[in-house]
């Protein structure tokens, strides 16, 4: 099963990213759990400089921006 993490302190962009991930999961009939990582110590495991960060199965795929749905679908489908 997919494990997706949204890294961010809970700002507007992080929430938007989380919603978009949920939408892509639903649209593509994928099963996955979406975790929110708000602890900075935990977040820095991926060495990000900008939030929000997106982690799919423990690999950081994007940070500092909200990728579009096609991009997210591409990462989730792998």
């Amino acid at each position: 099963m997919l494990n997706v993490k949204v890294l961010g302190s809970g700002c507007a962009n992080c929430k938007r990213l989380e919603q978009r991930v949920q939408k892509v999961l639903a649209d593509h009939g994928l099963e996955g759990e979406v975790e929110k990582v708000t602890d900075y110590g935990e977040m820095m495991r991926w060495n990000i400089l900008k939030t929000p960060g997106l982690v799919v199965n423990d690999v950081l795929v994007a940070s500092g921006r909200i990728p579009n749905e096609d991009e997210i679908a591409g990462w989730l489908a792998k």
Partner: peptide, 17 residues
């Protein structure tokens, strides 16, 4: 550099580290 205040903390940690 593009930067918003919500990223201030990760940026700070990342720079100092």
């Amino acid at each position: 550099t593009p930067f918003c205040s919500c990223s201030a903390v990760p940026l700070f940690i990342g720079f100092v580290k």
